[in-house]
């Protein structure tokens, strides 16, 4: 069943536990030239106590129609049919960075040999019945992996609730 990562921005505090769990899972050493697959940000505007302020965590979005796949001349990237994750086999990677240019989220990283690496959704963990490392660690369940179908149903229900409340108000 196709799965998607969702982030509840009302719960995320940008603490980076997901980023650290990703480093632990994938043996990423930022001080030895590795680029982390997952990064957290604080985005703010203004100087007042109530001015806009939000927290985000970002890695590969596992786009349904992933532009990186078509941009790769060596065919390293593909969709996993089961999970819907954008996965890779970088054996044939020529380090051309076309995937990075095509990606709107700057997800592809390059290892010390110049080959593309990125978040693969912890696909081997998911296949073994475990959660992705970033999802498992999240202290506030802000980052989750859910079945796409369930998510869509949930969204429909939420929209229906809003409509219903509007009707009640009248």
């Amino acid at each position: 069943m196709s799965k998607i990562f969702i982030l509840d921005t009302e719960k995320c505090i940008g603490c980076s536990s997901c980023a650290i769990a990703c480093m632990d899972q994938n043996d990423i050493e930022p001080y030895e030239g590795d680029i982390p697959f997952r990064v957290c940000f604080t985005v703010e505007q203004g100087s007042d106590k109530d001015s806009p302020f939000s927290y985000l965590t970002m890695a590969c979005m596992h786009c349904e129609d992933a532009p990186c796949i078509n941009s790769c001349p060596a065919g390293c990237l593909s969709k996993d049919m089961d999970t819907g994750f954008t996965v890779f086999d970088n054996n044939n990677c020529i380090g051309c960075h076309s995937c990075a240019m095509a990606c709107p989220f700057a997800a592809p990283c390059f290892d010390k040999d110049g080959k593309m690496v990125k978040c693969d959704g912890c696909i081997d963990r998911v296949r073994a019945g475990l959660e992705p490392a970033c999802v498992r660690v999240c202290p506030y369940d802000a980052l989750q992996l859910v079945a796409k179908e369930d998510y869509e149903k949930e969204q429909k229900y939420k929209k229906a609730k809003i409509l219903a409340y509007m009707a009640f108000d009248k």
Binding site: C15, S16, S17, I20, A21, D24, Q25, A133, R136, V137, C138, P139, Y140, D141
Partner: peptide, 25 residues
């Protein structure tokens, strides 16, 4: 080689904070 929060544990129930997630290092 890796750490994870213990599921069902009274404080964390499977999760870890940023610091705890870095226990290996």
């Amino acid at each position: 080689i890796k750490v994870e929060g213990t599921a069902g544990f009274p404080t964390n129930n499977g999760a870890l904070c940023t610091k705890g997630a870095a226990n290996r290092q």
